[in-house]
Structure formats: structure tokens, C-alpha cells
Design a protein around this nucleic acid. Structure first.
Lengths: 331, 331
DNA sequence: CTGAAAGCGCTTACAG
DNA sequence: CTGAAAGCGCTTACAG
């Protein structure tokens, strides 16, 4: 396949210089004289030479890859984050490798997280065990985070975001607001629940009824069924769900039982995935800056690989997006 | 980071053999005597040695990577296909690299498709120019395909699948069936449109009204608006859309204008993405075997890399999934 | 079955 | 500024 591919020695021969000089033109052009550089560049053009990254990587002892560990690849929420990462990593000469932490058949995901496979790690799953990462690759945590690990984090303020959502519902006149939480033990779940409770308490309202969930559509549907199972006068008039996927499941279930949104119940999601602006009613939600989250995480990892060892937090702003699924109680 | 990592020479020293022997134990154990092998394996265990893939790859002139070219990474339809690919590639020692053919800022996506970057290519975008692939990497086409390229294809029978969908609508009693097509020039769009026309013609029914689309939610919404704009008695009583995303957009738009599905219009999608089973009404659709598509495509690529040069088609079966969005005309 | 040696295609101290 | 040479960590004909 690559028999004819020119290598550095072919360029050197044609330009009448050593391979060292060609290499310098490639990786450090300013230390080569202008005339020599011109010669070499011309030879590169004539031969059609293209650098072999694998060889360079072996020599400089890096792999040229960055590994992203994602809790669920088939969740569209992550796709745009990954796109943001790739946009920063590619120009810096890194490939983005992606692994799904749930999909690994038995074998530990951490077998990938070693120096011969990747130069750095971006972890988007806060439920991985902290011990696994001790002294391994340069690391950045994005969106979720692992308590007890000192590494840069790129995230939103989940508590604040939840408060914004609930303040909106309170402002519409709702007095009983339920929350459908994310998976137990997940840092996002806890922060969003805490924000919900804090906003209600700040207005002297009772603590929220909390339904269990796991961010999935199906768990939102179950929460809808649980809400429907309540006696009508005990049903919270507004529900804030910790993910848009759950909000879709919830709305689907209650609509299926002839409950009208927002007349009978206001529904607020979290994430602003593309779909929810097309539903009937369109979903009010919290927009996360997904592309920016990915870019910043990648940028912080490049910093880290470059020797910057700060373990600081980058907090990106969210946006309250109001659509048709929320209204004053009673419609 | 990797100063202390043992290498092959450390293992050889401890085991009292040459590096060649250690290498053989690693890649070709059966040609080493049982006793020597035991010694080496013990030394590997004691040193904690792990193979450096980059070095092996340089030596055997492969990269250890397979590149998947996807038209739209943020479409959940592709995520599960990628998961299927990774499940086959990882055990074979290949990393899966993923690139979005639309997201590349100017720079040609084909700069990735070269021997120093990947050992093989799986293309899921039928709109890439055929010339770009001449004499490049081992190639497999999945889902979509590029006319004029001879390579193994792994796909469904899109025309047959469309016929199944339309036969279902006809069976319910619909006599006027519209089609919302995929993007023009896309091979899938054409096959699904052809199947729609063929099924209607086979029953002596008039050709379908065809609305333009591009597989996106938003284009489905526009088709909904176009349908609404027709005088009520001219509206087709059933609509078959070439993607579930478009079906979501369509339903959202018509429901927004107080049209009831399926009472006023039956809607049929294509793909069976997870969400559509949770909508109200749940969507009738064609299920594509996404995971299997990914696995088979990866398997065929491994064959190709291994020297198999057949350019055959693998056709995977689809499934007609009937839910609440389709019913006899008038409800 | 095993070892000595060359080499995959680069980069980089070292010397000039 | 430039070159000769060593070396990144492996694999594999070749010889024994």
C-alpha cells in the first residue's frame, strides 16, 4: 500500500541535504536558513512527501491520540461535545479516540488509558473509580467529575442552572414543583437536586417531590407513570427533569393518558438537545454550551500535556430557554 | 510519564533470552518451545511489561487505526453503528477513529484517509466524490454508498423497506400516500422514493405527492407546514417519511396546528431511533439493524485488510415496527 | 527452536 | 546553520 511513499531520505537526497535538515524544516523551520528551507520545501513538493506520524510519535514518545471516555455514545448530548474536542485537537496534531464506558464487555476501560495508547484523557463519566486514574495520563474532567481527583474540570454550574429552572416555574406561580432526578451517586444528579431544593426553600415553598430517574427516556416515562398514579389534587403542577431525554419520556407518557402539557402540568427539561424544540409542545429547558464545553476541555488537556499542572475549574454559562411546555398553573 | 515502563529488552534480560524470542512469544507463541515460553511469560508478569503498539505498528507498517467517515456525528442513528464497529475492531487490535464529513472546516476529509493515519476506511457518506478514493486505503461502504466505487457494501434493501412501509399504509386503507424524501442525490433517498412509487403502482394507486427533505428534524417540520398548507380535502391521508427525525418534525408541526395523528393523518418513519417509541403517538417505522450494520462493516473491512478483495454486498434485514401513528384513514 | 542484526521512518543531542 | 550517528521499541528474514 505504501511502497512508493517517499520518506525523509528521499526528500533529503533530492534537496542535497541531510535527513536531519529535512526533519528540522518539518518541525522547526525557523532554525534552518531561508535558502536551505526553500530547497527542502521544493523537494517536498516534488516528491509529494507526507510525514509518517507513527514514526515521529515513536521517536518523540507520544502516541498522537487523546482518549475521551463517554458514558453513553448513543446519547446525542455527547456528540456535539466530541465535535468541539475534535475541532481543537485536530489542528494540534492529535486524533480523538472515543470509548464508551458502559459498552465495554467486561474488560476494564482503563486498559485504554495508558501511555502507549494515548497522550491524554478526557473523562466525561463521573462514576469511574478514582483509584484507576492515579498517576496515569494527563487528565481533564468534563461535564461530570470524579470526587477526589485533582484535575482541571470544565463544566457548568449545575446547581445554579437548576435554580434558574425552578425560579422560572415559581415565577409562573407554581407552588408544588416535582423533580425527576438523574442516577443516584451521579454528581450532576446531586447538584441539580440541590439547586431545586434551594430555589424552593428560598421562596418558602415545600421541598420537592422527587422521582427517581437515570437520564434515560424510559426513566422519564416511568416518572410520568408515577405522576399519573397520584391522586389528581396531589399532583405537582410543575415538573423539572434533570435531562431532556427524561422530559421527552415524561411528556410522552402523560400525553398518552390525555393529560395536557402545559395546561395540566408544566414540564421543564435540561440540556436543550435538538429534538426538544420540535416537540408539541416545544420544551422549556436549560441550554448547555456543548460545543464550547468540548473545546475548552480539549484546550485544557493540551495545556496539561504541555506541562501546565493547575487543577482549576472552568465554569461555562448556561441559558434558560423558554418554550411552550411551561405556563402558569391551570394553563 | 513512561520512563519506567519496561520494554522488551527488560523482559528478555530477566528471562535470559533474546529480544527476538520475547517478541515471538508476544506475536507468535506457538513457534516457541513450551519451556521458553513459560520463562518469558513469567518475566512479562514480573516486569509488568505491556507492548508498545506504536513501535510494533511502525515496524510492521500499519497504524492500528480504522477511520469511519460519518455524515453527521450528532445524529444518534450513527452512534450505535459506531458502537458495533468498535466491538469488532477492538479485539482485532484496531482503534476506531471517527470523523464527521460535514464538520471539517474547509480542509478535505480525505487528508485523513491515507496509509500513515489508518489501515482502512469505512465510509457512511454516499455523497463523497468517488475520485478521492482511487487507490487509497482498503475500503468498505456502509449504509450509504458511492456510485462507481467497487468496494464491499453493507446495507439494507432500502427500496424493499420503503415498499414494506407503504404496503402497510395501503393495507390500512390509505389511497393517497405522500412521501417526504431525503436529500436529493443521496442514494438512500432515491431508493426509498422508488420503493414508495413501486408499492403504490403495484396497487394501481396514483403516484405519491413528494415533499423535499434532508433527513433533518427541521426539514420534516417544513414538510408538515407544506402538508398543512394544502386544502384539507387534498391532503394525503398518510405520509411516509424517509427518516424518523423528519417524522418527529412533521408530527410536531401538524400537532401544533391541532391536527391529530393518526386520526387526521397517518405517519410512518424510517430508522427506529430510540426516541420515537416514546412519542405521542408512538411512531410506526422501519427498524434498521444498526449494531449489526456496524459489526458487519467492520468485519468486511478486516477481511479486506487481510487480502480478501471481493466487492460483494451484504444485505441485512429490516423490521416493520407498528405503533400508534398509523391507523385506517379517518382514525 | 533461538539469536544477532538490520531496519520500520523519524528526531535530536553533539560536534563542527 | 548543518551533518553523522544514535536511538524510539519493536519484528523478522537469515543463519545456525
Amino acid at each position: 500500500m505504501q511502497h512508493q511513499r517517499p520518506k525523509i531520505v528521499d526528500v533529503a537526497r533530492l534537496a542535497g541535504v541531510s535527513t536531519a535538515t529535512v526533519s528540522r524544516v518539518l518541525s522547526n523551520p525557523e532554525i534552518v536558513s531561508a535558502e536551505t528551507r526553500r530547497l527542502v520545501e521544493e523537494a517536498i513538493r516534488q516528491t509529494g512527501y507526507r510525514l509518517n506520524q507513527a514514526a515521529r510519535n515513536l521517536r518523540i514518545r507520544r502516541t498522537g491520540g487523546v482518549l475521551a471516555l463517554v458514558p453513553n455514545l448513543s446519547n446525542p448530548f455527547f456528540s456535539q461535545i466530541l465535535a468541539g474536542m475534535a475541532a481543537v485537537l485536530a489542528p494540534a496534531g492529535y486524533n480523538l479516540l472515543v470509548a464508551d464506558t458502559r459498552a465495554e464487555g467486561g474488560r476494564s476501560i482503563l486498559t485504554y488509558a495508558e501511555p502507549s495508547r494515548a497522550d491524554g484523557l478526557i473523562v466525561l463519566d463521573g462514576t469511574l473509580p478514582a483509584e484507576g486514574f492515579a498517576g496515569r495520563l494527563p487528565l481533564v474532567l468534563a461535564c461530570e467529575w470524579i470526587p477526589g481527583i485533582a484535575a482541571p474540570r470544565v463544566k457548568i454550574d449545575n446547581r445554579e442552572a437548576a435554580m434558574m429552572a425552578v425560579e422560572h416555574l415559581i415565577g409562573l406561580g407554581h407552588r408544588s414543583v416535582a423533580h425527576v432526578a438523574g442516577p443516584r451517586g451521579n454528581v450532576l444528579s446531586e447538584a441539580r437536586l440541590a439547586g431545586t431544593e434551594q430555589a424552593l426553600a428560598a421562596h418558602g415553598l415545600p421541598a420537592p417531590m422527587v422521582f427517581p430517574g437515570d437520564f434515560s427516556l424510559e426513566s422519564g416515562r416511568r416518572a410520568g407513570a408515577a405522576w399519573l398514579a397520584l391522586p389528581p389534587h396531589e399532583r405537582p403542577t410543575a415538573v423539572f427533569l434533570a435531562s431532556d431525554a427524561m422530559a421527552c419520556g415524561f411528556i410522552g407518557e402523560v400525553q398518552h393518558h390525555d393529560v395536557m402539557v402545559p395546561r395540566d402540568v408544566s414540564v421543564m427539561g435540561f440540556d436543550d438537545i435538538e429534538l426538544v424544540s420540535h416537540m408539541t409542545p416545544a420544551l422549556s429547558t436549560i441550554r448547555q454550551p456543548r460545543e464550547a464545553l468540548g473545546r475548552r476541555a480539549a484546550q485544557r488537556l493540551l495545556d496539561r500535556i504541555g506541562g501546565d499542572d493547575r487543577a482549576d475549574d472552568t465554569i461555562l454559562p448556561v441559558e434558560l430557554v423558554l418554550r411552550g411546555s411551561t405556563a402558569p398553573p391551570g394553563g
